[in-house]
Simulated scan of single mutants.
Amino acid sequence: MSRLPPLPPLREVIAAHGLSAEKALGQNFLLDAQLLDRIARVPGDLDGASVYEVGPGPGGLTRALLGAGAHVVAVERDRRCLVPLIELAQVVDGQLTVIEGDALDLDEAPLVGRGAHIVANLPYNVGTALLIRWLSDTAWTPWWASLTLMFQKEVAERIVAKPDSDHYGRLAVLAQWRSTPRIAFTVNRAAFVPPPKVTSAVVHIVPADAPEGVRLATLERITAAAFGQRRKMLRQSLKSVSGAIEALEALGIETTRRAETLSVEDFVALARILDAPDG
């Protein structure tokens, strides 16, 4: 376990650099050290581990990760936050690497290395896009060992949702077809500066075995059609997907059912038939 050198309080760092959370960047700063330490504990023991952090802002979660003994690569696109992050890097003896850039544009694996944990208080406006990117890794098992991510609670519930629930949809299927997500805990809006309008939640995701004979592109095509018209029966919502109705019948799935009644395994089985050489 690493022990950080004495650091000024985060609020003083924010004040000294004239920082404020930018709504346009989806920022909400977390300053509660106990809460930040709790987030850093979710992936398990990080002593000596590699961690990739997106959108560290003034560095609150970064401090917690460093204090847990992690070697952190932090990517920040807000140039205002780079100075305090670089100052932090200078006092932790090579434990922190700061990269200026947009995470959506980076080839991350070479920067961080395989087996890294991704831990981030994600900006709300890019959180889902980044999650889908990390879940869409062509090579599976992916380069990351786990994801510990902050989302709006509603998005978190969509990630872990089960069939026949209001939140179950494309995101649940794409998240659960080859990984295991759970909500670690919720975070009151008052914990943030400024407080967002919604409650947040920390989601922890670990890779699972990828089903064989299934392509992500096929699963995305099926779920887009099925949940794009979720109030319609499958025989209507999936009629635009060639072979889908026949595949449903081959699986013994009633075409009068609706998308939210199918399990993740049902969608995977459907995709497997469509991806078969004679499908």
Rank of each mutant, 00 (worst) to 15 (best):
S237K: 11
R230D: 00
A224M: 09
V206K: 13
Q229C: 08
A217C: 05
I205V: 15
L248Q: 12
A201L: 00
I245M: 09
L219I: 06
G228S: 11
A225S: 15
T199Q: 15
G243E: 04
P211V: 02
S240E: 13
P207I: 06
G252I: 08
E220Y: 05
R221H: 11
V203M: 02
L234V: 10
H204V: 05
S200L: 01
G213A: 10
D209M: 09
D209P: 06
L219F: 07
P207N: 06
S200P: 00
T199E: 15
L216S: 08
E249N: 14
A244M: 06
A208Q: 12
A208P: 01
G252S: 07
A201N: 00
E246Y: 05
A250M: 15
E212C: 10
H204F: 10
V214A: 03
A247N: 09
A210C: 07
K232G: 00
S242M: 10
V241S: 04
L251H: 12
Q236D: 13
A226P: 08
A250W: 13
A247P: 08
E220D: 10
V203K: 01
R235L: 09
G213H: 10
V198Y: 03
L234G: 07
A250K: 15
E220A: 13
V206C: 03
S242A: 14
A224V: 03
A217M: 07
E212I: 11
A217R: 12
E220Q: 14
I222C: 06
E212W: 08
R231D: 07
A210I: 02
L238W: 07
L248M: 13
S200D: 01
V202M: 15
A244K: 05
L238S: 08
Q236P: 03
K239I: 06
A210E: 10
M233I: 12
A225Q: 11
L216A: 10
K239Y: 02
V203W: 01
A201H: 00
V206G: 01
L216K: 08
I253G: 07
V203P: 01
L251A: 13
P211R: 02
H204L: 05
E246V: 11
A208D: 13
V206I: 15
V241M: 04
R221Y: 05
R215E: 14
L219S: 07
S237H: 12
L248V: 12
I222M: 12
R235V: 06
G252Q: 07
D209V: 11
V202A: 03
A226E: 06
I253T: 12
G228W: 08
V202K: 01
E249I: 12
L248A: 11
H204C: 09
G213V: 08
R221Q: 14
A201D: 00
V214Q: 04
K239F: 03
L216H: 13
S242H: 13
P207E: 07
L251T: 12
L219T: 07
A226D: 06
L248I: 11
A225D: 11
L234E: 09
M233F: 14
E212H: 14
K232N: 00
V206S: 13
I245G: 02
P211C: 02
G243K: 04
A217P: 01
S240A: 14
E249H: 14
P211E: 03
A224S: 13
R235H: 13
A201Y: 00
